[in-house]
Design a protein around this nucleic acid. Sequence first.
DNA 1: TTAAATGCAAATGGTTTGCACGTTC
DNA 2: GAACGTGCAAACCATTTGCATTTAA
Lengths: 159, 159
Amino acid sequence: MTVSAVSNDAAREKFKTYLGTKGLRVTNQRLAIFEAAFAQTEHCTAEELLDHARAIDDSVSRATVYRTLPIMVESALLREIDIGKNLKYYLPNVEGGTEVSQVICLDCDKIFEINAPFLEWYGNSVASRVGLRPVSQRLQVSARCNALRDTGVCKHRPA
Amino acid sequence: MTVSAVSNDAAREKFKTYLGTKGLRVTNQRLAIFEAAFAQTEHCTAEELLDHARAIDDSVSRATVYRTLPIMVESALLREIDIGKNLKYYLPNVEGGTEVSQVICLDCDKIFEINAPFLEWYGNSVASRVGLRPVSQRLQVSARCNALRDTGVCKHRPA
DNA sequence: TTAAATGCAAATGGTTTGCACGTTC
DNA sequence: GAACGTGCAAACCATTTGCATTTAA
């Protein structure tokens, strides 16, 4: 608890600094969205962040969420994850965000983050072969739950 | 030319057989969509396939394209590629479709297909660690064009 | 014959945008 | 008080769907 609070403080300062640097303003709405995002432990959607941000400051609108999330992604505070559904997921970007892969459970929609330190190397190696320089890479495995198949129950799936 | 014609013939038979197996009908529209898809050399969208299919049979509708593409994907005739834009790309599935990665040029939107034989192994290794069994995997590198940066021109990008 | 397929147009749903009003420096 | 930010509602846009009609088997 204390640790994450400290870490959030640092991130909040980073956010404010980033806004200042870009000539953007520190508003209550942006701070509420920040708090909502950094209170999450799971990947969450813009809509979920809207709900949580409104619990903090009920003046936050959907539009402002959608306008603020890209800023937080650009500042490397959040990572944006697209798993090929018609929506995007967000999560606090703790470290080495480009060297992570996702395992996506098709049964319960849970997203597991997995270290994949070779990703950066792979991107460089493969992009240079076609005359490009890598900007980002993603590695995602879609999978099904063994427990659900065998026992009919998955601890990640709501009953 | 002859080779690809032969190969398309085989694919077309496979398509018809698949339809028959599933109790689905072989219609002119579905065949036109098949021809359109297998005439492509690049990744293309549903809308582009609609245009090309209409050039073959002008009775093909958008709805039928969107209904037919999933069938062709399920029958492993086409691969569906989602690069995190709000649309999907399709291309004929020649072989080993699950062991391929994409390098996506952010400057010209060209998609390069790259062999990545370790992908299947990686999926198994990582999914089993969280109690899942892999269904599919994707590895994508987004990159920028060196030629465009250095010379202002990219052979893939229309002038 | 009859279940399946089609075209059309309307609906969907996450995201974006135009605009008038607020807020900030 | 000029510029930036905001909420609202409408717009967007790839895709999906309901329904009346057509068609393959």
